[in-house]
Write a protein that binds this DNA or RNA. Structure first.
Lengths: 104, 104
DNA sequence: GTACTATATGACTATATAGTCATAAATAAC
DNA sequence: GTTATTTATGACTATATAGTCATATAGTAC
């Protein structure tokens, strides 16, 4: 049976990919249906649907059905804190290291 | 060139795997050499070395050489906050969902 | 120099992942 | 019923990842 460490890895994996990070950023303002999400992030509907399902399975997104549409939302606000902390790390470390902030 | 979103994905990927989470947990108390890390987590030296290198490349670990030994440490304390937040999510959500807390 | 210790890496296998395209399933409107 | 809309999924390809084993590299002790 899966233990705590594997569940933690699953949640982290669910947010550790560019397309999924774009989805999460788009969901910051609240729930959105698939038909709003995939054009916003510039990915195919089928690929977007797979990523949404994956994040829901990991416990990162919630899913609500309303007629034809399926609305996804960020399930735990802590996920946004996680991403903001990682953004801090990147800005301190990697961005500096690669001199991407020449203009800043 | 890599953009902010890809660097964030790299950092998250660096912590989104069981073996690497074990390493990070072991490094909570401070820096350790490879010869201490791999027996502690129960992995082969070569595999441990690859994971350490990967985490250092992503900016998650620092590396210090002292004679024959290489000491790795958590570079940004925010990483531990990230993992603690994810642990909270798992305890709220996944652990509950899978009824692993029957005794709690 | 040799012998030993600690770490990294090349070559490989097996599995997982991201993405595409076509299509299925479910609901809505008529 | 038919048609249109929205989402999910099967089948597939290409790439990435985790791990193993043997060996190379770098430093220490003699």
């Amino acid at each position: 049976m899966k233990d705590l460490i594997e569940f933690r890895a699953d949640v982290l994996k669910a947010v550790a990919q560019s397309t999924r990070l774009k989805i999460i950023d788009f969901l910051r303002d609240g729930e959105r249906c698939v038909c709003e999400i995939f054009p916003a992030i510039g990915e195919a509907q089928s690929n977007t649907s797979r990523h949404l399902k994956m994040m829901q399975s990991a416990g990162v997104l919630s899913r609500r059905k309303d007629g034809l549409k399926i609305y996804y939302a960020i399930k735990h606000p802590e996920i946004l804190e996680v991403i903001d902390l990682v953004t801090d790390i990147v800005k301190q470390d990697i961005y500096g290291r690669h001199s991407l902030l020449k203009g800043a």
